[in-house]
């Protein structure tokens, strides 16, 4: 590796401080939006309608409810310890403004990937894409809303 100049190191430190200072449990500034990649699997339209299985409902209870709450109201047991509250999955007014693709990416790659808070973890290694598609449907069920 090339030897880095002091100014580079300095600006890197400033970057780390600025970006690193705001976490999930401390007051955080507005999130910066990382560049969105648009992977191939998202371009392929899912032909069959996604049906939310019983197993996926249990998956939501097992993994998601600890933050989003048993009924998806954003009041899980971790909620009051996070600076950015977990999204209320029953609030149509906001959720209509988000696309299914944004939901999918938030769940698979975490909140940061769609310009939302990093307190929302990435679940892409924990569950399959088809489960995540079902979770997106389940959230649409909870909010009784579709993307506008």
């Amino acid at each position: 590796m090339k030897k880095s100049s002091p100014t580079f190191i300095l600006s890197y430190c400033v970057f780390l401080i600025v970006v690193g200072i705001t976490g999930c449990s401390e007051k955080s500034a507005e999130e910066t939006r990382p560049p969105l990649k648009s992977p191939a699997y998202l371009e392929e339209a899912t032909p069959e309608p996604v049906v939310v299985s019983e197993k996926t409902r249990e998956t939501y209870q097992w993994y998601c409810a600890q933050c989003h709450g048993i009924q998806g109201k954003g009041d899980g047991i971790n909620a009051k310890f996070l600076t950015v509250p977990p999204r209320n999955h029953t609030k149509a007014k906001y959720l209509e403004t988000r696309t299914d693709k944004q939901f999918f990416e938030a769940i698979k790659f975490g909140g940061l990937s769609v310009g939302r808070a990093p307190c929302m973890p990435a679940w892409g290694n924990t569950m399959s894409d088809s489960t995540i598609h079902e979770l997106v449907r389940y959230i649409r069920e909870l909010c009784q809303c579709e993307a506008l």
Partner: peptide
């Protein structure tokens, strides 16, 4: 430097602190 990086990862990249 590692400390700054790890704080970033613990709180943001991996969201450990959320739980």
């Amino acid at each position: 430097g590692q400390k700054a990086k790890i704080k970033y990862e613990f709180e943001r990249t991996f969201s450990c602190i959320s739980c």
